[in-house]
């Protein structure tokens, strides 16, 4: 028997499935593609880099190939004091986020300003670049756009990192990799809901807040507080450090896992971390045999814990 006798059925099937794909894929993609990127979206994608999950440049999710976010209060080229500015440093070879590779996705206006005044088309991944988010008028409205500071101000990636120093550098993009790899988003959503979350977790995101970001990692199964604005509620690096090492040091009833393994071999002072000793002392503390919990080691500058804390403290 051939399929011939099912000619009507197979055409009906193609029509039915085709129509539903038209409505659920084509129309929404037209709508979403026309969304204008907000300032939040520009900051997010510039600090996260190209992809927040598996990628060719970072196949084992170690936080490689990601930009460094720096806070500058002097011009890295001339050394003159300037208005404090957040700059996104892409050393040579670090892939650019989607908004720079495909400016079309930034939406009307933002695209034109970024390409025109921002000169983002001049930035090359091979030689690296420094970006800032600036504002300008477009058709009577003030819009944020991406400025290629390497072209407009002559800032070089190496100079910008050196001018900021480690204290003013944040590994936010690498931290997002940790957030995805360690599965933080299985419990912590990044999406205050549009109905009842306003008071407690802050404003829900806007339509254009995610242009250029992948994955968005909204999360669906909330077992813990929403984190989209967590740093606005709690910006203490000390609290975060203790909380990641062992959440029950700061929140007795927390069911969050310990992330002490992100500290790696050595602490900030270069001393080897003795996990067994720490855990034994913590158990004594829990059993009431010690008055104070053992001291949490400070994470080393290059440690994964530092990256993750940088990411979480950037969620404002």
């Amino acid at each position: 028997m051939a399929f011939r006798e099912y000619k009507i059925g197979s055409r009906m099937f193609a029509f039915a499935l085709g129509s539903s794909m038209m409505i659920t894929l084509y129309f929404p993609s037209k709508d979403i593609a026309s969304v204008q990127a907000t300032k939040t979206a520009l900051n997010r994608q510039l600090s996260f880099g190209r992809i927040g999950g598996f990628s060719v440049e970072d196949p084992f999710l170690k936080g490689k190939g990601k930009p460094v976010t720096v806070f500058l209060n002097k011009d890295p080229k001339t050394g003159q004091p300037i208005e404090p500015v957040t700059a996104y440093v892409y050393p040579a070879g670090v892939p650019f986020p989607s908004g720079l590779r495909h400016p079309r996705i930034l939406g009307e206006g933002v695209k034109d300003l970024s390409l025109g005044q921002g000169r983002i088309a001049d930035a090359k991944e091979g030689s690296g670049a420094v970006f800032v988010v600036s504002e300008a008028g477009f058709n009577g409205k003030t819009l944020s756009y991406i400025e290629n500071a390497t072209a407009t101000r002559g800032w070089q990636p190496g100079e910008a990192v050196a001018a900021a120093g480690d204290a003013n550098s944040r590994y936010i993009g690498s931290g997002k990799i940790m957030f995805v790899r360690e599965g933080c988003w299985w419990c912590h959503t990044l999406l205050p809901e549009e109905t009842q979350d306003w008071q407690y977790f802050g404003a829900p995101p806007m339509l254009g807040d995610f242009n250029g970001e992948s994955p968005t990692a909204f999360g669906s199964d909330r077992k813990a507080p929403d984190l989209l604005h967590v740093a606005s509620r709690n910006s203490s690096r000390e609290w975060m450090t203790m909380h990641f090492y062992n959440p029950r040091l700061v929140q007795t009833h927390s069911i969050m896992p310990r992330y002490d393994y992100l500290w790696g071999e050595k602490d900030a002072a270069g001393n080897k971390i003795d996990y067994d000793k720490w855990r034994a002392e913590y158990n004594e503390y829990v059993a009431g045999k010690r008055v104070y919990a053992p001291e949490v080691p400070q994470p080393a500058a290059e440690s994964e814990a530092r990256m993750l804390i940088d990411f979480v403290l950037a969620l404002k």
Binding site: M21, L25, P28, S29, I32, A33, V35, A41, Q45, R50, I51, F54, P97, S98, I105, L207, F210, N211, G212, E213, S214, P215, T216, F218
Partner: peptide
């Protein structure tokens, strides 16, 4: 179709929606 965000690095709400 559902994995196009990974194949072509689609981003933003397109990625969230296709997920």
């Amino acid at each position: 179709v559902g994995n196009m965000p990974e194949f072509f690095n689609l981003t933003g709400l397109t990625e969230a929606y296709l997920t």
